[in-house]
Design a protein around this nucleic acid. Sequence first.
DNA 1: ACATCCACCTGCTCGC
DNA 2: TGCGAGCAGGTGGATG
Length: 287
Amino acid sequence: MPELPEVETVRAGLERWVVGRRIASVEVRGERTLRRHLLGPADFTARLTGRRIAAARRRGKYLWLPLDDDSQLLAHLGMSGQFLALEPEVPPGAHLRARLQFDDDGPELRFHDQRTFGGLALSDAGITDDGVPLVLSHVAPDPIEPAFDPERFVTAIRRRRTGVKRAILDQTLISGVGNIYADEALWRAKLHYARATDRLRRSDVERLLAGITAVLLEAIQAGGTSFDALYVSVNGESGWFDRSLEVYGQDGEPCSRCGALIVREHFTNRSSYRCPKCQPKPRNGRW
DNA sequence: ACATCCACCTGCTCGC
DNA sequence: TGCGAGCAGGTGGATG
């Protein structure tokens, strides 16, 4: 659910609500949220307390808040993570995992996560030339950041030997794309999800990249996709891009381009949606 | 180095 | 009504 556009919406909310503020206290609930912070909750809390939040940044689906001591508070929303800016007196919700209170006594930052695939961690391992925390250096640039090199992407994906949807879901090749926007981008590029990456023409990949970039930017513009209350942006507003989805979740509906009925299929243990006419199946397995 | 599979979670919906 | 199965799906470690 939270893919790049939703995470960007959350990043903008964090910028609005917490950048420039000093952390006065930290509370963590449960074990799983800090599982990536290997030094444990006591270390996390101690190192965060007293720090000022300097910025709110993102690569793909990862968020981080650079702090005034050159460490970074890393966050991943997983499937159901939310950041909420709430007044301290608001009673804690059922899925509250962590809360940061500030020395200005203003709204606190709460991290909620129903399914606990998300998490927080603190890193002081430094940053790369792109300004990305070293612990995230396995995450490829996303298509809307300056460090993204389209030529490099075209070359890299055509060297892979896999299906095109698998490739664009691989965060080490291109980051930010999840199951929803992958299907939307493939529809825009008129590509079947199982098309062999090493048989794609340059023009296919360029069309695909254009589709990915366009759908991500349009979704950001719209405030991110939301299906239900699981996804809420940092100030509590849900997105509405789901009204604009062309294929995802649209099985049985006519394709807006050709009128054929959208189908739902399973691919890599996930649902995939496509137009059977615009995105026809490879005939002999590979093509 | 690369590709694939599955565990990790909770809560909702569906069918019997 | 109860209950289990299926489903949602990002990440990363294990396995090939």
